[in-house]
Design a protein around this nucleic acid. Sequence first.
RNA 1: GCGCCCGUAGCUCAGUUGGAUAGAGCAACCGCCUUCUAAGCGGUAGGUCAGUGGUUCGAAUCCACUCGGGCGCACCA
Length: 651
Amino acid sequence: MNLLSLIRQRFAPALSELVPDVSPLLDMIRPAQDAKFGDFQANFAMPLAKQLGKPPREVAQQVLDRLDLSDFCEPPEIAGPGFINVRLRADFVASRIQQIAGDDRLGYQPVALPRHVVVDFSSPNVAKPMHVGHLRSTVIGDAICRTLRFVGHKVTSDNHIGDWGTQFGMIIYGYRHFRDDASWQASPVGELARLYKLVNQLSDYHATTAKLPLLQKAVTEAREKLAQLQAQAVADDKVKKQLSAMKKDVTTADAELSAAVASIARIQDSPSLLASANAHPDIARKAREETARLHAGDPENNALWNQFLPSCLEALNQIYRRLGISFDLTLGESHYNPMLPGVVESLKSRGLAKLSEGATCVFLEGNAAPFIVQKTDGAYTYATTDLATILYRRESLKADEVLYVVDKRQSEHFQQLFATTLLWGISGLKLQHVSFGTVMGNDNKPYKTRAGDTVGLESLLDEAISRARRIVDENDDRRETPLLTPEDRARVSEIVGLGGIKYADLHHSRDSDYVFDWDKMLATTGDTATYMQYAYARVCGIFRRLQIDRTAMKTQGVPVLLNTPEERRLAMQLLMFGYAIDSVLNDYRPHLLTAWLFDTADAFSQFFDRCSVQNAESEELQKSRLILCDLMARAIHTGLSLLGIQVAEIM
RNA sequence: GCGCCCGUAGCUCAGUUGGAUAGAGCAACCGCCUUCUAAGCGGUAGGUCAGUGGUUCGAAUCCACUCGGGCGCACCA
């Protein structure tokens, strides 16, 4: 049992003598927010005092009178307005450490009632290369899977790839009209990506050209309105507000117009692109028709689909292999195609879906826009696919819970999806959108290259590893006698580089946008993966120096001594591992684990600085410290592994 | 126009769901390697938690409004 549960359990009977429902009060017992307040603090005396009509400190005292923690705690203290501070006895902490010594799980017991959780994450589009936007979903989803498995749940990771949508019609169209056979032979995936981009660009060109007059009109109108408003001499608050709104409208309209002009210019500046554009005026519609034919079972398009897909999947897998991430299932949108007509029928027969402006829609209370399950042209949407997927996960996979690790901008979609599912009558299934924010560049806009393209994931990984290599080289070269062979350096660079990327992502709270910054990510100082990895390498160094084989070391029955603040702090950190894990899973927030890892590595660094193992005052103390060191190594190793990050013995 | 989110130190971000004097990393400044990896450790400085009002024992956190920023909103996924 974790320490907090133990404390709460002991408080429960004392509280139940004063009040019928103790559970909200027990929730107010927490780890202390400052070490000077001890290890845990109970905050319930103040609200309880109000309930009982007595002064808080008196209530706190009443609770303490009914409470005996002396078998494992120092006498609790009442502080401030009525906080109860609890500090564990050193011998108890030591005995706990002894119990979990040598355990990779740090004493964490698997859950009694495992759930089957399907985690839907990464979900790239097969037609286009993966980019930085897929990184968060992939890294966060993977960390959640690993953590759920660690605590004993059954997890099915499912990569719901986009292999059936409009983009596929675009590549089919592109393949038919713009294929370069030499490139296709050399690199099918590269050629498909080029074709997708080309068709997309040409479609955009026509759409933008058609839209241009409207955009120009919008700018003039916005300008005129602004001028009109400015002409009014009265400047009360209402006018001021309108004025600033108008100014904003003008800048947005301007920005849209200049973006459109620029994108048109990109085509017109290139004779070959312009020729292609002129030769294919209907490209967007025709690409959609290819998609429709694919969905309708057209043999030729299905043959192309079957031809394209394996290499697309292989390209994705190459990246997943580098990231050390794998999926139990890769059931793309295409998998659910046969189920879609049935889904719409079912919704209609239950009176949930009805025809509106030619499309079949589910109207939900509180939502202005309908949830469209079948378009006017008969095609199904991702809403339909998502509903089919839920049905499949419930009925065939027998899932208890489904997590969608998806960009927060899609929250309305999920809100509608979940609401529809409920009305549809699928029960016993918990659905949660695990949303995350956008990866931004230094300019606080979505992360792009200087040229304005999205950054490919492949090159991102290469860049991380080569930057890491420079740091590894520099550090090892600085030593009098370098510790690493070239092969070691390559391996360590990969561990540090990939760890840096993943950690940078995971240590931000998932729903906030964050700024992508190479220098911070691979910094040799501060709250980075490197800091934890370095702490691990240092602890390994201790064992190497003392010529002790950690794996063979005796851990049971060795007395643990915690006489310095550093030793005690490290020990407490190690004991709080379970609490950190539980808080991560409470709302699927991996950054709570990175925070624990950082605190733990920090506690170790202080210990390393002030508590020599090699020169311990006694053999007994050295053995005790070795227990802590070994447990620390396991803690970092296990904790980082739950985030999909590796460690190196020497770095 | 409707809806959702955000505003915390110079920068990047936490803040355990309402608790004690608001924290960390970076950057700045000062100090620590003849002893286990200095990719480290110690210290100093840095705040009107966007603003105003409210709710209460207690507010960065909850409510209302204001200012500023972002993102969605009928046939793309």
